[in-house]
Design a protein around this nucleic acid. Sequence first.
DNA 1: GTATGCGCTTCAATCATTGAACTTGCAAGC
DNA 2: GCTTGCAAGTTCAATGATTGAAGCGCATAC
Lengths: 168, 168
Amino acid sequence: MPLGTDYAGQDCSVARALEVVGERWTLLIVRDLFYGIRRYNDLRKHIGLPPATLTDRLTSLIAHGVVARVAGEGARDEYELTPKGVSLWPVIYGLSQWGGANYVEDDKRMRYTHRSDGGLIRPDGICPGCGEIPEPTDIVIQKRSTADTDPISVALREPHRLLEPLRR
Amino acid sequence: MPLGTDYAGQDCSVARALEVVGERWTLLIVRDLFYGIRRYNDLRKHIGLPPATLTDRLTSLIAHGVVARVAGEGARDEYELTPKGVSLWPVIYGLSQWGGANYVEDDKRMRYTHRSDGGLIRPDGICPGCGEIPEPTDIVIQKRSTADTDPISVALREPHRLLEPLRR
DNA sequence: GTATGCGCTTCAATCATTGAACTTGCAAGC
DNA sequence: GCTTGCAAGTTCAATGATTGAAGCGCATAC
C-alpha cells in the first residue's frame, strides 16, 4: 500500500504529516520550491528523479493543498508552495541543520541570513540580531558548495530570498 | 536503488539528512523513541509495521549512529536514541506541529509542556514562560487522543518526559 | 516439561520505483 | 506553412522494496 494512505496513527500528528510529505522525494521537491525552483524540468534536473515519479509527487502535493500550479512568465505553468506548504519551513530547516551538522563540512553548508538585519540565522532558527524567528520570505539563502555545476546549482550561489522565483 | 544510498544532492544538507531518516517508517521509529518506547515489539505494535521492515530500519539507524542498542531491565535489550538521534527533535516537533495544525483537531493533539515552569510550548518550540527553547529532556508530553486503545497508547496518556523509558 | 511471549528471520506475493523511450503542444526560425 | 527544438509530460517492462503470514530459538512462568 502506498505511503500516503496508511500510516497507522490516526491521531498522531507526526504520522499525519508524513502521510502527506513522507514519501521519497517529496521533501526535496518542497525544498526546491522554497529555493525558488518552479518549473517541471528544473525540478527534475536538480533533484534527479524520474519524470513519472515527479509527476506523481506533484499531483499528490497539489491534491493535499501543499503546492499550487500557477501561470508563469511566458506560456509555461509553474509550481509554487501554498501557505500550507510554506508553513513546512521549520521541517525543511530542521532537516537542513541536522544534515549539515552531521554530514556536510562547515564551509559547504547553505548560508541563511535575515534579510532585514543581515543576521546569520542560528541552528535553532533564531536571528541573533533581533531575537526573532524570521519568516521564510525574510530569509536570504546562499549556496556555498561548488560541487554541482548544473545551471540551477550555479544560480543558487547568488544570494536570493526564499520563495523568490529563480530566473536564469 | 534504496533510499539511503542515492539522494542526488551531494552537498545538500536536506538530502543528506533524508538519506538517513527519509525512508518510510524511520521518523515514526524516532518519534516513538522520543516517547520512551524502547522495545522491539512495542515499536512494532505501536507503529504497525512488518517485523522485517522494523529490523531493517533499526539496523540502518544503528549503522548511522542515530540509535543504540543497549541492555534494558531484565534480559531484554532496548533501543535508545544517541545524542545525534536526540538532535533530531526539531524535525519531529516541526512535523508534529504541521500535522497537528492541518490534520488533527485541537483537543486531540499531543500536549507539550516545559518541565521547569509548566509553560505550554508554542508551535515554534519556544516556552512562553521563560522564552527559551527547551531541551527534549525538559519537555513533558501528554497524549490527549483516546482513539487508540492499545496499552502503549494508553500509557502515553499519562504525562511523562521525553526520552524517559515508558514502563508498564 | 509444557505453554506463553519476545525478538526476531524467512519467504512468496504484491506494490512502487526506475530509466528509457515515446508523445504532445507550443514557439521561433526559415 | 514547414520544420526544428524544447518543455512537459506519459507509457512500459524490469527491477527492487514492502508486505503479511508463518516459523524459529530462547527465556521465563506455570
